[in-house]
Design a protein around this nucleic acid. Structure first.
Lengths: 202, 202
DNA sequence: GCCATATTTAACCACAAAGTTAAACACTTT
DNA sequence: AAAGTGTTTAACTTTGTGGTTAAATATGGC
């Protein structure tokens, strides 16, 4: 549970906004589920818009630093890659609704959201840094050559996609939430081995 | 343009619903953009809900058969895999909004949408068929062994994810729509080569 | 006991959006 | 010319929802 009503509201609101999006969320529903009334919502956050903004900001502020940190780790290429993959999987295991929310925000309010993104992240440079390290590894002949953007898509696709596709995947394969969770734990190694095999230079 | 007003409405409505979701879409906006009035909307479709349903049905009816066909192709494992990857990429190149829409529907109205899915598709058996063929190939020692569900996630992740992540990807890598499109064409081969290398049995 | 902050109550307003209707008009077919 | 279908116009009702308010009531620290 929550310490005070204010954070309780934030928690409930977050759940609704992330699951259903802004337009489909009723402030009344948030109030009901938090066991308070609209007047208190107004008291703390003034408006639905402000509440929503507060939530996106908080999400970005928990996610982006972890992304950046993972991308900027010191070490060999393979060490860095492993940190990235495991960090992402761990993060999404904790907060499975995040990836979908981000994608959703981005595909709608692109301009505004990208602004917010740029404002509060050293994320993009971190990506560029890792891309560079991929490139160097290719030039050094340590891994097979392919366009860095494509390799990035392969890595992110294998890592992030399962969490976005979870509902359809669990339906088709008849997996429970627990099954899925253990599959994702296994997956860290699976991805690393897959990448090692795919990138081996012969 | 559209032949008659009815299909024009469907086209405009589809665009709005797919981009913004049900709740954020205004019937008035649809009417305005289609150059007609709400009365005509009502004349043809009775309600927003019915119009929306009509659209999801039409989307599923164009997508699912193509999925099923790709998954059920005859041939060797690698031939089948190539058909799947290229079919998916081609489909999403034509209709880039589809993957996100499907994921979005599924993560919200799971129960109802899955019903609709099951009702109008032989998709699931097709997936099972391909999974079986993966399994046989592993048993025969032709490709490296790994849990079929994991391999499926790798394939789908690399193939589908880029289209979902397009907005963020294009932002980070400063790609235009055209850049992205050519990248996806390249990608068919990239994915196939990546898979071949990753699955090679040594 | 007093004061500040938190919280409830119970209204209420304003507005946007969906849905509805009736009448008229246009166009084509018969 | 009549009939049917498509389409517009212009109103209207209804409902949902966000926002607002003022007063009353707790609650806890000083």
């Amino acid at each position: 549970m929550a310490q005070d009503k204010e954070t309780l509201i934030l928690e409930v609101a977050r759940k609704h906004f992330v699951q259903k999006g802004y337009a489909a969320t009723r402030t009344q529903d948030i109030a009901d589920e938090a066991g308070i009334n609209k007047a208190l919502l107004h008291y703390y956050f003034r408006s639905k818009e402000k509440l929503y903004h507060e939530i996106t900001v908080r999400i970005l502020d928990t996610i982006l630093p972890r992304f950046a940190k993972a991308l900027a780790t010191e070490g060999t290429f393979w060490e860095r890659l492993e940190v990235i993959v495991t960090s992402y999987v761990d993060l999404f295991q904790e907060q499975p609704d995040i990836p979908f929310f981000i994608m959703s925000e981005l595909s709608q309010k692109q301009a505004r959201f990208v602004e917010e993104l740029k404002k509060r992240s050293h994320h993009f440079p971190a990506v560029q840094g890792f891309v560079l390290s991929m490139h160097q590894e290719m030039e050094a002949g340590n891994i097979r050559k392919l366009p860095p953007a494509q390799l990035m898509l392969n890595i992110m696709g294998m890592t992030v996609f399962p969490f976005i596709a979870k509902p359809i995947f669990c339906t088709v394969f008849e997996f429970s939430d627990n099954d899925f969770s253990t599959l994702m734990e296994e997956r860290k190694d699976i991805i690393m081995n897959f990448l090692k095999a795919a990138l081996k230079n012969d």
